[in-house]
Design a protein around this nucleic acid. Sequence first.
DNA 1: AGTCTTATTTGATTTCGATCAATGAACGCG
DNA 2: CGCGTTCATTGATCGAAATCAAATAAGACT
Lengths: 226, 226
Amino acid sequence: MNRLMKPGARERETLLNSGLLSALGVESVAAMMEIAAIGNLPPRQLLFREGEPADMLHSVLSGYVRVYKLDPDGREADVELYGPGDLIGASVVLDGGRYGATAQAAEPSLIARFDLKRVRDIAGRRPDLAMALANALTGQLARAFASLADDRLHTAPQRVARYLLAQCPVDKATSFRLPYQKSLLAGKLGLAPEALSRAFSMLRGHGVNVRGRLVHIGDPDALRRI
Amino acid sequence: MNRLMKPGARERETLLNSGLLSALGVESVAAMMEIAAIGNLPPRQLLFREGEPADMLHSVLSGYVRVYKLDPDGREADVELYGPGDLIGASVVLDGGRYGATAQAAEPSLIARFDLKRVRDIAGRRPDLAMALANALTGQLARAFASLADDRLHTAPQRVARYLLAQCPVDKATSFRLPYQKSLLAGKLGLAPEALSRAFSMLRGHGVNVRGRLVHIGDPDALRRI
DNA sequence: AGTCTTATTTGATTTCGATCAATGAACGCG
DNA sequence: CGCGTTCATTGATCGAAATCAAATAAGACT
């Protein structure tokens, strides 16, 4: 972590709207603000490693954090990608155990950190915080289940199509920018970068055009039927 | 659900030792006992379906519950398998939303059900319950991440080997019984039953012997090196 | 602009596991 | 005990994606 600092006005603002704090009562918000530290991370910096004793809770203010697990020979498998406003679910270790995965900044990122012991203390006194944690975790569990099922049920082009559809809320032709590099997206979807590339080129035949990070979707319905 | 009933002495005992209630203070336990209903499920009975408004929290007392997601053409992907003492994480929907997956009894099972609205009420007043939920969810998230990574990093025989090792705590030759049918295990590991079968026969060359549900592990170290 | 580095695409090959098909084993039940 | 149904194994084939290798494109930084 480059510089550690108390949250300034900007950061407080962002924190207030983050998933974790947005549903809390004023007192819990104050208690959490009290123990928040803000850090600026360069790309590739690790937040924590799989197996380390867990001491900090993390929340993303800006940028993206990739969470992955390693196998014995060093290959990595991404299990989640957290963006602005997200509580890093993998850092919620309330029982004094260890982190179950490794977290790494995927871009220059602004992160809020909270001492886990103190979070535990506050949550033990203030049900709204404990509930907010439970709610965030519920959402993340649902997403993890969705990824798991997606991996097992859909081909690479289908997974990519579903991702694109999830990005464009409207049900008609749209353009938008991918929020991060394709290699990150590939990891998130459980694909090798080559497979993502091939999926994109196969989707070209179904109204999808990609130039750099710019994606144009010609026919969402066609995508849905891939 | 076949018969709904108040928990008897046996069920209360089991509930007390379950993951959800074991860490609670006496008052929270009492509050939860108050709203608990016990049900006996025949195999294949559904507890809830993906997409239904969530109204009940479930915990397994005995038997096994399979949680899966469906794709449009009806194929199923298992995302979790819950056994005795487990809180069914997929049924923790505290925000009035919908179930994100389907739950089905995989054997004759005894289940405890709790009205979600009331659970929310109690947890809103009693931090220990909210914390217990958060803790259970943390564990399940970690398991989901592990499955996700396992799927992406390991071959079928490796996944099976890891499962077997996780079952036999001791680090020397052991025998034990699989707790459920092989087809269930296959689903849990994200494999077709045929692939599990082939994995077992390949592991025979590494000191693993399987007869029915009986597994003998000759050399755990060899397994670990698969 | 030019260079260096990192990302992405494309091609060729190979491996893994799903699927289809058929046989064999186990288990519950009358 | 024998029958039937469900479960497990084995074989053959197929398809999807990982991997390896190389070429191209895109950015970052002088």
